[in-house]
Design a protein around this nucleic acid. Structure first.
Lengths: 342, 342
DNA sequence: CAGTCGAATGTGACCGATAACATCGAGGCC
DNA sequence: GGCCTCGATGTTATCGGTCACATTCGACTG
């Protein structure tokens, strides 16, 4: 047995051992067609024997492309962004790509631009921007570098490919479900100003009500936090005309459930509550929460597909607006028919 | 005005514009001391003018080191891992490092080894392994590559530097707080088998009770989920001798609070509940949750520091066991003195 | 049977940076 | 003044791959 080599094996070591040129080894590594089967096997054997790993930097330098994509994300402690990141990583891994992340401290134009810059410096092949605030969407317009980019949850008229869940449709699903149960109208606890998802969910809610010719109650302002749901819940508990509430996310719905319970308002007998996201906890709340599920894995997959598309030549050719991912309603125990009297 | 260059500027373009050799540009970029002040400024001006960004791959290839660290993580949808990742990214960014992630689908020996391999292929400078299960801790022993590595939350006797929060101390804080309030003993709803944190919190809980000479009730088994907290809560609500419960994480505590509320057990008047983690929701539960806060940012910072230490030469020299990060108790409304009768 | 084609393989340049060594003056010392 | 040192800069090799082109050789064509 020879001693463990001090340095990792390189392509020329493999070539020597297999008795071929380094270029032939390169061909085998890249699945080039014109290599004899026997030669390919000999090379692969040498690769295994030396435990050879191609050096990504040399590869990227020579080929002017890397196998890493960059992700710019904001507030990865929230369920949505975290789940999207996870889905993206999974898809990228399957496609043989690595994932490099930059978390934004704050979502302004300079922040996004700087984050993309930082990733460009790492020579990523492309970037995905998960930055669902309007200010960030604006920043995306003026991306400095020539890096292929895909944006999640932003339809702010950018010229970049966009992947997003159809928030409007999701909100309509929730409202239509409640109307179908017999509720006269549905109240809405919204997400914070400035978030695209929040705006779209308000739109969908309003559209569904107007389409059914129902009165549109004033929007209750929330900020994604359970506390804002709790506070809104305390207020609603006093209003006897309220029979159904659509919360812009599950955490707010969680706070609302607690508030209603505290005030002895029964869910769903007195008031129905519907959330948005289907966080892991949703099924275990009391009562289990009816909510709108977003397929974040699918979002991740589509981001990667869009990016690979971009790599495949048509740089500025077709700024395809990809179809939005359809959300789905998950009916659990927190929604039901309105109380008989109302 | 000249046209925007088709390709990004490289170091020789800068050299030409500044009227120096490319090596001098390199010296300026790397803050080499022996460059005349005037020359340095001229180069920097050219860098700005051409919007030059050094190519990370060329840099890494030539210097045999990259400015990217890899992170292997598991279940980034849980608060702890997500927060640690975020803290690490922040620290890395400040130190001029990028962060590349690989999420594990399942935590076995092969998975961890493969993830590290994948990162090694990306030529990362080092890796941080956030894999707080015992099986993963075992895998860490047999890391294939010669990559500098740091492990989070694992003390399984590996020869790798380890960063972790002192879970035992955290659990003791919680229990001692409850005992100081006058409780005779404290029950414990644990995390899932196989998790190092879960084991350590059980240990700390038991130690605190034994140190005070109190009876040690049987451990209630949980799995981090709110449901397991809910179910345990329903069971405890029937047992009048229980006055205080220490839950191994906040989600379980959340489920328990709900169960107790349903059964008309008042918190903290009848039963005190303490959690672990201090998730963002903890302060907004009803009642606001007393819990043990972990400083995940600090964990991230220390991981990076340990890694930079490793880069700084002493590869296998000193497998320093870094001091554990101290947790802190956050007292809120969910804990109080036991009911008078007991 | 010479000429052509294409599959299989080899040779050398090149990607864009850093490392190692060379060079060239200016100043200090004996 | 010659020699040495050291600061400032330039020249060339090098990292580990891929790309473009050259070469070889057997098969097919007219």
């Amino acid at each position: 047995m020879s001693q463990q080599p001090a340095r990792a094996a390189v392509i020329r070591d493999v070539a020597r051992l297999a008795g071929v040129s380094h270029q032939t080894v390169s061909r085998v590594l890249n699945n080039h067609p014109s290599v004899r089967e026997e030669t390919r096997e000999r090379v692969l054997r040498a690769v295994t024997q030396l435990n050879f790993r191609p050096n990504a930097m040399a590869r990227g330098l020579a080929g002017r492309r890397s196998r890493v994509i960059g992700v710019v994300s904001f507030d990865t402690l929230l369920y949505g962004p975290a789940a999207t990141l996870l889905g993206l990583e999974r898809a990228a891994r399957r496609a043989g790509y690595g994932v490099s992340i930059v978390a934004l401290e704050q979502l302004d134009r300079a922040g996004v631009a700087e984050a993309v810059d930082r990733l460009a410096e790492q020579s990523v092949a492309g970037v995905v921007i998960i930055a669902p605030l309007m200010t960030a969407a604006a920043a995306v317009h003026s991306l400095p570098t020539g890096v292929p980019a895909v944006v999640v949850e932003s339809d702010a008229g950018g010229d970049l490919p966009t992947v997003s869940v159809d928030q409007v449709a999701g909100a309509r699903l929730a409202v239509e479900h409640l109307l179908a149960l017999g509720h006269r109208t549905v109240w809405h606890l919204s997400g914070p100003q400035g978030w695209l998802e929040a705006r779209d969910r308000v739109d969908g809610w309003r559209q569904a009500l107007e389409a059914a010719g129902r009165p549109v109650p004033p929007v209750l302002p929330g900020d994604w936090s359970p506390r804002s749901g709790y506070e809104a819940g305390l207020r609603l508990a006093g209003q006897t005309e309220v029979t159904a509430v659509f919360c812009a996310n599950d955490q707010q719905a969680l706070g609302m459930l607690r508030a209603l319970h505290e005030r002895a308002v029964r869910v769903p007998e007195d008031i129905s509550v519907v959330g948005f996201d289907d966080i892991p906890e949703a099924a275990f709340l009391s009562p289990p929460l009816t909510t709108v599920r977003q397929d974040f894995d699918e979002v991740g997959r589509r981001c990667l597909a869009a990016l690979l598309d971009l790599f495949g030549g048509n740089g500025a050719a077709a700024p395809v607006r990809h179809p939005r991912v359809p959300p789905s309603l998950v009916v659990r125990a927190s929604s039901g028919p309105p109380p008989p009297g109302r």
